[in-house]
């Protein structure tokens, strides 16, 4: 027991027997069926799997946008699966930087205002907010576009604004659900390079992708199938299905 909790505390994310069941028209949809894994600080993990395997559902739970039906989710040592909505809002604000496939920028606000938003909800004074937002935009090389609105930016630029927004509050981890899904391959490559830089700089990254080539570049990948973890190991091996180093994981209890 004491040893186990020791392990958990060193992990940034520890999920145990996570399930998520949706009820649609009287029918149960079991999107997650008992998922367990851990992520330590500074890791870069890709989550792969076929469409409908539960990747987005898992990301929403990890990002505290959704709560699991059962199981435990420890984030930074705190059990977030038992938290109420207000506390989860604080966790989302402080611990998590979310990056979406569809960017999810506020269309009427400038790039700078979009990046400032998480700091607004944290109660950071305006002047400091502005400085930190500019610094975050600088990390994604977009300071020259900070007064533009999203519809005046290219797809790649929009995603970089979104990444700046995720970085600005210095969260414990970045969660990205198919961040290159809406971009052409050249622009997607730009974004992946950015992730590589962030990883080198020590950020913790969890990335959903259905591109095996991208997953193969990640140090670690987890493969989901039908709501269960079926493989967890080095990115190249899990993504391309080669090598013996893949730890096959059996789902369920």
């Amino acid at each position: 027991m004491s040893e186990a909790s020791g392990t958990r505390q060193s992990a940034l994310i520890q999920v145990e027997q996570l399930t998520r069941v949706f009820f649609v028209g009287g029918e149960e949809v079991r999107a997650l069926r008992g998922i367990s894994f851990g992520v330590t600080r500074g890791e870069w993990v890709a989550i792969i799997g076929q469409s409908g395997s539960g990747k987005s559902t898992l990301m929403n739970v990890l990002g505290c946008l959704d709560t699991p039906t059962s199981g435990r989710y420890l984030l930074n040592g705190k059990d977030v699966s038992r938290m109420d909505d207000d506390d989860l809002a604080v966790i989302r604000n402080v611990e998590i930087g979310f990056i979406f496939q569809t960017f999810q920028l506020l269309p009427r606000e400038t790039a700078l205002a979009n990046v400032e938003l998480p700091l607004v909800y944290r109660g950071v004074p305006a002047r400091e907010r502005r400085e930190r937002a500019k610094a975050a935009l600088d990390k994604v090389q977009l300071t020259h576009r900070m007064h533009h609105r999203p519809n005046e930016l290219s797809g790649g630029q929009r995603q970089r604004v979104a990444i700046a927004r995720a970085l600005v509050s210095e969260p414990s981890m970045l969660l990205a659900d198919e961040p290159t899904g809406n971009l052409d391959s050249a622009t997607g490559e730009e974004i992946v390079r950015l992730f590589e830089q962030l990883h080198k700089a020590g950020h913790t990254l969890v990335l959903v992708t259905h591109e095996p080539k991208l997953a193969a570049r990640c140090p670690r990948a987890i493969r989901l199938s039908d709501g269960e973890v079926v493989a967890d190991g080095p990115g190249r091996e899990v993504a391309l299905g080669t090598g013996a180093g893949v730890a096959a994981v059996t789902g369920g209890a």
Binding site: G63, L65, D85, D86, A89, V90, R92, N93, V94, F98, Q104, L105, L106, L117, P118, Y121, R122, R165, S169
Partner: peptide
């Protein structure tokens, strides 16, 4: 509203 909630806005 979804974006604001994801970024930390409370109800």
């Amino acid at each position: 509203i979804g974006v604001r909630r994801a970024l930390g806005a409370r109800r």
